[in-house]
Amino acid sequence: MSEIFTAAAVVLVLTMAAGLVRVVVGPTPADRMMGVQLIGTTGIAVLLLLGFAFEMPALADVALVFALLAAVSVTALTRRRVGQDRS
């Protein structure tokens, strides 16, 4: 079974690498952030698959941190503009 999980992880890492195109070309920071979110979500799946392939349940905790992190970085990015700068 662990071969299947590893193979799926390889496929997912390839799609993550393809999604990096959106982080590099943009055009807006929001698009880049969406690319980062995609990496986060796919990374969770990769971590879980690796955790089952290597029989290391501790990797599920890393996946949990990834899930929380996506929320933090999106909230940090979507702050509303405050009055002081460029109207």
Binding site: A30, M33, Q37, L68, A70, A71, V74, T75, T78
Partner: peptide
């Protein structure tokens, strides 16, 4: 939850 809320915010 974070995906739906984050997409709403963006």
């Amino acid at each position: 939850l974070s995906g739906a809320t984050g997409s709403y915010l963006i």
